[in-house]
Simulated assay, not measured.
Amino acid sequence: MVKKIIALVVLVPLAIVLIVLSVANRQAVTLALNPFRPDDAVLSVTAPFFVFLFLAVIVGLLLGSAVTWLAQGKYRKKARAESRAAVRWQAEADRHKTRAEEIAGRGLPQIPAK
């Protein structure tokens, strides 16, 4: 419930800002990818300005996500190694428990529980 409220508090204002930017920036602009000949039609794209704004936000989100994922790789590797170790320790504990039950079943003296 709290996550939904926080999402609404963040996403609704963000959506309003993006809609206002889209309406305010409808004029067509040309993005020239050739710095030496900006009038080159092959390496230029004409679109409404808000399209370039949205593309910049999307590219930024993707790059940020990729960098974060790569930076957290060492933590994921450590978590995998510790998970494997935990499974090994659990298997060893289960073997010891089984062995203790076998010994107790043979009628050897048991230590009374306090």
Rank of each mutant, 00 (worst) to 15 (best):
A24Y: 08
Q27C: 00
T46I: 07
P13E: 05
A28L: 15
A24S: 13
V59I: 15
S44P: 06
T46D: 06
S22C: 10
V12M: 05
R26L: 14
F36R: 13
T30L: 02
T68K: 02
F52R: 07
L14W: 11
L33D: 01
V10N: 02
Q27N: 14
L31V: 11
R26H: 14
T30I: 10
V23R: 10
Q27W: 07
R37C: 01
L8N: 09
R37A: 12
S44L: 06
F49G: 05
V57L: 15
G60H: 07
R26N: 14
Q27Y: 09
D40P: 08
R26P: 01
A15D: 04
T30G: 01
V59A: 15
T68H: 11
L21Q: 13
I16H: 02
K74N: 07
L55V: 14
A15P: 04
S65C: 12
R37L: 11
L61C: 08
F50R: 05
L14Y: 11
T68G: 05
L43N: 13
L11K: 00
Q72M: 13
V20D: 07
V17D: 04
V17F: 14
A47I: 01
A71K: 09
V12I: 15
P13L: 06
V59R: 02
L43V: 05
V23Y: 02
G64Q: 02
Q27A: 13
V10T: 08
F54W: 13
A66T: 13
F54R: 06
A28V: 15
L8R: 01
I58P: 01
L8M: 11
I19W: 12
T68D: 08
S44H: 04
P38Y: 01
A28P: 01
L33I: 04
I16S: 09
F52Y: 08
T46K: 12
L53V: 11
V20S: 07
F50C: 10
V10A: 09
G64C: 05
A47G: 00
P35T: 04
L11W: 03
I19T: 12
P13Q: 03
A71W: 12
L31T: 02
V59E: 08
L63I: 14
L61W: 10
P48D: 07
L31Y: 08
F50N: 11
L63H: 02
R37H: 12
V20N: 05
V9W: 06
V12H: 02
V59W: 10
K74P: 00
L21F: 15
L14F: 15
T46A: 10
S22H: 09
